[in-house]
C-alpha cells in the first residue's frame, strides 16, 4: 500500500454511466482484487475502486458515475492528477484452482478482468459469467472474451440469458472448483448460500481505506474483519451476512 499522485492517461465513457479510467504513476505490483482509493477535488474522503488492470506503471479503474464524486471524476481529462492510495487490501487467492468461474454483477466485474489475466498467465482459460441489469449497463464484453469463455445474463433479457447471475449459472450449467464473485450484496449472499467454494469481493462505505477507522468492518466467523484491510476479498464460507 502506498500514498502517491497519479496522472490521468485517459478517461473513456464505455456506456451511459460506466467509465474506464487509466492512471499512471509510481505503482507497486497489483494483485487482482486489490483496490485504489482516489481523491476527488471538493470531496473530503477518497473513494475506493477495485483495480481492473495493471500494466507497465498504469492501472485501470472502471467506475460508474452515480454520485457527486464519481460524476466529478467523469470530467477528468488527460493530464489531471489525483492523490491516491494504491494496492490496498488482500486480493483473490488463485492457488489450487484449476477450473475457476468468475462472476461479475454490474460494475462488480471490474476486478475480475485482472483476475482473468492472472489465470491466463497460469495457463488457465476461466469461465466468466457477467450479469447486468440490461444491455445498456454492459461493458468490457469483448475484453473479457479475449481472456475466457464469457456467459451473459441481464435482468430484462436484453443481452444473454434473462435472469440473475445465479439463475444464469444454473441455466448455462457452469461447473467450477472455485468461483470468484464481485457484485451487489444480494448476489454475493445468494452465491455464498449456493456454494461455499468461492471467494467474494465486498464493497463498503469506507472512512480511511487502510484499517484505521473500523468504518467498514463486517462480521465473519473469525470475528470482525475490515473490508479495506483483511478484505475486500473474503472466503464465501466465512462471511456472516
Amino acid at each position: 500500500m502506498k500514498l502517491t499522485t497519479l496522472e490521468v492517461i485517459s478517461n473513456r465513457q464505455l456506456n451511459p454511466r460506466t467509465y474506464e479510467l487509466i492512471l499512471s504513476g509510481d505503482i507497486p505490483p497489483v494483485k487482482s482484487g486489490q483496490f485504489a482509493d482516489l481523491a476527488v477535488k471538493g470531496w473530503f474522503l477518497k473513494r475506493p475502486f477495485s483495480i481492473a488492470d495493471c500494466e507497465g506503471g498504469r492501472i485501470t479503474v472502471l467506475y460508474k458515475a452515480i454520485g457527486g464524486g464519481t460524476r466529478e471524476m467523469a470530467g477528468w481529462k488527460k493530464g489531471d492528477t489525483t492523490d491516491a492510495l494504491v494496492c490496498i487490501g488482500e486480493g483473490f487467492d488463485t492457488s489450487a484452482c484449476l477450473k475457476p468461474l468468475l462472476v461479475g454483477g454490474g460494475i462488480g466485474a471490474a476486478p475480475l478482468y485482472l483476475l482473468a489475466k492472472e489465470f491466463n498467465a497460469m495457463g488457465i482459460t476461466p469461465d466468466i459469467l457477467l450479469a447486468f441489469r440490461d444491455k445498456e449497463e454492459a461493458y468490457y464484453i469483448d475484453e473479457f472474451k479475449a481472456l475466457g469463455n464469457v456467459y451473459l445474463s441481464t435482468d430484462n433479457g436484453s443481452l444473454g440469458y434473462k435472469g440473475n447471475a445465479l439463475e444464469a449459472l444454473k441455466y448455462y450449467n457452469l461447473e467450477f472448483d472455485r468461483y470468484y464473485a464481485c457484485g451487489p450484496l444480494p448476489m454475493l449472499k445468494a452465491f455464498a448460500e449456493y456454494s461455499r467454494q468461492g471467494q467474494l469481493s465486498l464493497e463498503a462505505r469506507m472512512g480511511c481505506g487502510f484499517g484505521a477507522c473500523m468504518g467498514c468492518s463486517i462480521k465473519t466467523k473469525g470475528g470482525p474483519k475490515r473490508v479495506c484491510k483483511e478484505g475486500p476479498v473474503f472466503r464465501a464460507d466465512e462471511v456472516i451476512f
Partner: peptide, 23 residues
C-alpha cells in the same frame, strides 16, 4: 464489541460522520 452495522461512514462537506459504535 462489534459495534454498529454498516454503513458506519457518511461523507460531509469538510468532514465525515461515523457511527462505528466502539468496535
Amino acid at each position: 464489541r462489534y459495534g454498529n452495522p454498516l454503513p458506519r461512514i457518511a461523507e460531509c462537506p469538510s468532514g465525515l460522520l461515523n457511527s462505528i459504535g466502539l468496535q
